[in-house]
Amino acid sequence: MKKRILCAVIAVLISLSPLHLEAQSIERKLLTWEQRSVNIGAVLEERGEVEAEFFGVNLNQDSIWITDVFAECGCTTVGFTKDTLSQDKIASLKVKFNPDHRGGDFAKQIIVRTNMDIYGDTLVLEGTNIPVLDNLEKSYPYRKGNLGFRLPAVNMGNVFTNEPKLKHVELHNFGKDTLGLMEEHSGIPEYIAVSMEPATLSPGQRGLLLINYDGEMKNDLGYFEENITLSFTDESQIDLKVMSVVHEYFQPVPKSLEKVVPKLGLSEIDIDLKEVSTGKKVSRNVIISNMGEETLKIRKVSTNCECVDIKLVSNELDAGQRTELSFTFDPKGRRGIDHKHITVFSNDPINPVRTIVIKSSIK
Rank of each mutant, 00 (worst) to 15 (best):
K2E: 12
K3P: 00
R4A: 12
I5N: 03
I5E: 05
L6K: 13
V9M: 04
I10D: 03
I10F: 09
L16S: 06
H20F: 15
L21R: 08
E22V: 12
A23K: 11
A23W: 10
I26P: 04
L31M: 04
E49K: 15
N60M: 01
Q61K: 02
S63D: 08
W65C: 00
T67I: 03
T67R: 09
F70R: 03
F70C: 00
A71W: 00
G74T: 05
T77R: 15
V78I: 06
F80W: 13
S86N: 14
S86D: 09
S86Q: 11
K89A: 12
I90W: 05
A91M: 06
V95S: 06
F97S: 03
D105M: 11
F106C: 07
A107E: 11
I110A: 05
I111V: 10
R113A: 02
T114E: 03
T114R: 04
N115A: 05
N115W: 07
M116Y: 03
Y119E: 13
L123Y: 01
G127Y: 03
G127A: 05
L133S: 04
K138V: 05
Y142W: 08
K144P: 04
K144F: 14
L151N: 06
L151E: 05
A153E: 12
N158L: 10
N158R: 10
N158V: 13
T161C: 04
T161M: 03
K165I: 06
L166P: 02
L166N: 08
V169D: 01
E170A: 13
E170G: 13
N173G: 13
F174H: 11
G175T: 06
D177M: 08
G180L: 07
E183G: 02
E184K: 11
E184V: 08
H185P: 04
H185E: 14
I188M: 02
E197S: 09
S202E: 15
G204Q: 14
L208Q: 07
L209D: 07
L209Q: 11
I211W: 10
I211K: 08
D214Q: 09
M217Q: 14
D220S: 15
L221F: 15
E226C: 04
N227L: 13
T229S: 14
S231R: 07
E235L: 11
I238Q: 06
V242C: 04
V245G: 00
F250E: 08
V253P: 04
P254F: 13
S256N: 05
K259H: 01
P262H: 00
K263M: 10
L266H: 06
E268M: 05
L273K: 01
K280E: 14
V282I: 15
S283I: 02
S289C: 07
S289D: 10
S289E: 14
E293G: 01
E293C: 02
E293F: 07
E293R: 09
T295F: 10
K297I: 15
S302N: 09
V313W: 11
S314Q: 14
N315H: 11
E324K: 15
L325Q: 07
S326V: 11
T328R: 12
D330L: 11
R334Q: 15
R334H: 12
R335K: 10
I337P: 09
I337D: 14
K340I: 01
I342N: 02
V344S: 05
S346C: 05
N347S: 07
I350N: 02
I350C: 07
R354W: 06
R354F: 04
R354I: 03
I356Q: 02
V357K: 14
V357N: 12
I358D: 01
S360I: 12
I362V: 08
